[in-house]
Write a protein that binds this DNA or RNA. Structure first.
Ligand code: FES
Ligand code: FES
Lengths: 144, 144
DNA sequence: ATTAAATAGGATAATTTTGTCCGATTTGTA
DNA sequence: TACAAATCGGACAAAATTATCCTATTTAAT
């Protein structure tokens, strides 16, 4: 569904949001540990997200990653997915035709765009704040 | 969503079904041409589908690929997807956790399994016969 | 028999994705 | 100032996916 990079990106952002709600900045090392992802690869992804202003990075000794309180409930999964995987998730044809086109649809077009619309709706309506609910209580998890 | 191999597999099977309904067997070359896929790579995929008895291959001079009339409406897209991509489409966690597990769900689990269920339902309810409807009339396409 | 046309299958190559390494830079602290 | 801890960024490596090539085999037709 999503690339590994995108999966790590969502999990990492969620963890950063969780800690930012508690008012603490987190280091790359801690993030990778808590979401069970390869450290250096995760660094690249966080750089991307930082450039797209989805997360904030702070260099230097006490540096790390954070998300401003006010943004946590504003940032939607859709932004993260778009930043990393682009819009092929939303616009690509399910059978791999050059582009999804209702004028020259593939045989699964009608059924497929409905599923994709549901996915899009889910990604656009789920904020990082939503993602953090249940994490502290152990109701949901970012690693296993 | 699906691998390229799987996309080619579905498109190829659909084209084979279409021609089989007309009573003619089709060659690899014709298939690759009609679905716009790389010939040799498509050959590998057809071998897989043939081994899993989803399509039939006939060797030799007048050989090619075909699907028996009675099977065309029985074969569902789900079988093709499973044969090529395995069950990760149905069982994998949307955020990449080792496995999707409702006892230790990831934050998007509840929403995600619903979308996956819809996708599964679509794949399990769509037969190759369904896929061929509209192709002759140019209402749907396998290349573009 | 010979030939031609087709699939089967192994080896290999190209590309993309995923992952690692290391030096440069930034910044807090002593 | 010196040092330590952290991100940044470029180069590189490994793995997976996608794609190609070539030979063997099968089969129909001559
Ligand atoms: S054309 Fe294939 S999904 Fe729209
Ligand atoms: S645990 Fe992630 S989708 Fe089910």
């Amino acid at each position: 569904m999503f690339s590994k990079a995108c999966e790590y990106g969502i999990r990492a952002s969620t963890y950063i949001a969780l800690k930012s709600l508690e008012g603490t900045r987190v280091s790359l090392k801690e993030i990778a540990d808590k979401i069970d992802s390869p450290v250096a690869f995760t660094a690249k992804i966080l750089q991307q997200l930082s450039k797209k202003q989805i997360i904030e990075s702070v260099k230097g000794s006490l540096g790390g990653f954070q998300i401003s309180q006010s943004n946590i409930s504003q940032i939607k999964l859709a932004q993260i997915v778009y930043a990393i995987d682009g819009n092929n998730v939303y616009e690509g044809c399910g059978l791999g035709l050059k582009r999804c086109n209702s004028n020259e649809p593939c045989p699964v077009h009608d059924k497929f765009i409905q599923i994709r619309a549901d996915l899009k709706e889910m990604l656009e309506s789920t904020s990082l704040y939503d993602m953090t609910m249940g994490l502290e209580e152990g109701l949901t998890h970012l690693k296993r």
